[in-house]
């Protein structure tokens, strides 16, 4: 049974139809990547899945009591709000010290527990968001442009970490990204979105599909092949500083 299933969903935001007639589903343990140009409705799709947006038409069905770990595209913490990394992990459910420590380690943010959220660098912030999303054993991990602000080796390491976590925790992963070559290499299935689902399937299939090439050109096809073979070495970008 699918974790999330969407049938014929249309979403209007501020008078514009952002998504029309989208069908989508994700199964347990699957890594699915959504690619598409700016304004193609990628974030809107994710926000509809977590229940932040009510679709105008169609249905979003989540499996009962689905545990979602969500890493938003950007998260601005008001400077007037004092919040340590450790306290942030306690939202909305408190976790015990051992679980918090272990999860921070898992996300590569081991040394950050007592730091203020507003003092973290972009990469540290992303790893803390990931750590929080991993608490409570999520069945579905949702990442919205999670590597914004990271350089390319940094984001490659981030996605490698996601693939490792999936293998270890068995959770499904749904992510959105601009960095096609890096993300596609780590995906089981790719969905190309531009207001509607243009094409979907295995990464190689989508990369060669005419709809995909019309949106992104042919340049990334070679990069995809290149990155497919670069997984064997690591730069240890997750090391705590």
């Amino acid at each position: 049974m699918s974790l999330v299933r969407i049938d014929g969903m249309s979403v209007r935001l501020g008078g514009n139809t952002v998504l029309h007639h989208v069908d989508f589903s994700i199964d347990p343990g699957e890594i699915v990547t959504v690619v598409g140009p700016n304004g193609s409705g990628k974030s809107t799709l994710l926000r509809a899945i977590i229940g932040a947006i009510r679709p105008e038409a169609g249905r979003v069905t989540r499996s009962p009591n689905l545990r979602i770990g969500y890493v938003p595209q950007k998260l601005h913490i008001d400077p007037t709000l004092p919040l340590t990394v450790r306290r942030f992990l306690d939202l909305p459910r408190r976790v015990d010290a051992a679980t918090a420590r272990q999860t921070l380690e898992e996300a590569g943010a081991g040394a950050l527990a007592s730091r203020q959220m507003t003092d973290l660098s972009g990469g540290q912030f992303q790893r803390v968001l990931l750590a929080r999303a991993l608490l409570n054993a999520p069945e579905l991990l949702i990442l919205d442009e999670a590597t914004q602000g990271l350089d390319q080796p940094g984001s490659a390491a981030f996605y490698q970490r996601i693939a490792d976590l999936r293998d270890r925790l068995g959770c499904a992963v749904l992510m959105v990204s601009h960095e096609l070559h890096v993300v596609m290499a780590a995906s089981d299935r790719v969905i190309c979105l531009n207001g509607h689902v243009c094409c979907e399937g295995a990464p190689e299939h989508v990369a060669s599909a005419p709809e995909y090439r019309a949106l992104f050109g042919t340049g990334t096809g070679g990069a995809l092949a290149l990155y497919r073979h670069e997984h064997s070495h690591s730069h240890d970008h997750g090391a705590p500083e």
């Binding site: 932040a52 770990g69 938003p72 998260l75 909305p92 949702i142």
Partner: peptide
């Protein structure tokens, strides 16, 4: 607090 930090984080929880 969760809703204050970020509404979408709240929805996801």
């Amino acid at each position: 607090l969760t809703a204050t930090v970020n509404p979408d984080l709240a929805y996801a929880s």
